[in-house]
Write a protein that binds this DNA or RNA. Sequence first.
DNA 1: TCTGGGGTCCTAGGACCC
DNA 2: TCTGGGGTCCTAGGACCC
Length: 433
Amino acid sequence: MFALIDGNNFYVSCERVFRPSLEGIPVVVLSNNDGCAIARSNEAKALGIKMGQPWHEIRHFEESAGLVALSANFALYGDMSDRMMSLAAGLGPTQEIYSIDESFIGLDGVRGDLKARALAVRSRILRWVGIPCCVGIGPTKTLAKMANHIAKMAERKSGCYPIEHAQVCDLCTLARSQVEELLAATDVGELWGIGPRIGKQLRAGGIATALQLARLDPATVRSRFSVVVERTVRELQGVACIGLEDASQPRQQIACTRSFGAPVMTYEPLAEAVSEFASRAAEKLRLQSSHAADVLVFVRTSPFRQDPQYSRSIIVPLRRPCSDTAAIVAAALLGLRAIFQPGYQLAKAGVMLMGLQPASREQLELAFDKPYAGRSKARLMQTLDAVNDRWGRGAIKVGSAKIGQVPRGWSMKQQRRTPAYTTDWAQLPIARA
DNA sequence: TCTGGGGTCCTAGGACCC
DNA sequence: TCTGGGGTCCTAGGACCC
């Protein structure tokens, strides 16, 4: 048995903790560069504002409906999340933190009235952290997710589900007929694992509700769709196919990407941005004690504009897997040089680290104890992270202006013989403080 | 004028092998 | 007219999640 605890309108709720005057009015939190809405209060949802809707399409609500828009503060949300998760963990013996605002709780072995227990945890989170939550309980993760959706909608919109399921919905204590009524009242597109594409295909085939999907034959679903949809069907039937992932797994891929506030057309500002992305990605990499084998860098124009489109990416292998900012920045810049073409209004760029592997004990020992260069590099990275942690991101950066650029007067042969990513730390310009 | 930033998993098809 | 059969690995792209 599983529970899913989920903070309501999480980013907006975090903001409201510190600005109670925002209660009861339409609020959105905006993405990077205030580009689009990434969280909406119930009042904003009632205005018809969609997830991810561009700000310029909804800003008229400022005047007409008193909409308040806030720039995102992810550091705050991360902190609030940690507090919420530690209280949510009290619901059962195991916890999987699924996203910044959701966690699954394994309920095996928990005795007594689960609904009362969930309500108590919910009110503790509300009192101590200030975040309103909803809890869904079911025999599988997919059903717990659906129960959570019911708990939220029953509270928010009267009439769509029976009001007694508001805030906490426990499918495990209901009669079969009651569960089927809830399944019948749930659109197939609301289910975990059914997105817009599959949802459309299902509806075209006459499957519009969760109940209709639950009654299909899994094998048929597998042949017509995929094992993923088949698993959803089995989970709806009460057969648990997706287990709880207790221990958090290290990431298999680390990305740092941004849209630009204004189009970028020249190499230098792009190189500066890509250096920054690569540095941030390398920090994240060291945080999980991994090494990367490859660096991917991409640039692209805005797909929403009519201008000539340009989208390229390249994967640059590192000489050997590492987590060294200098090597990763150099590789990213080498890649950027290969894919950059002037004349396009670039809207977005990013760096991804791939082929991640644990930094093994041998590698760590090698870095710290054996060759001088390796030791100093690892210590330098530790110092970099420590200083940036203490004094704020970007307090120390790796200088990048010249990395990846070819010294004046070099022949093509020399350039080919000396790829930038083989650059040693010693050859790189030292950071400015 | 202005459109997020992360992630995961699955599948199909090609290359390659014996 | 007929043109093996099976396996593995890799990659790009698609679909999904928040």
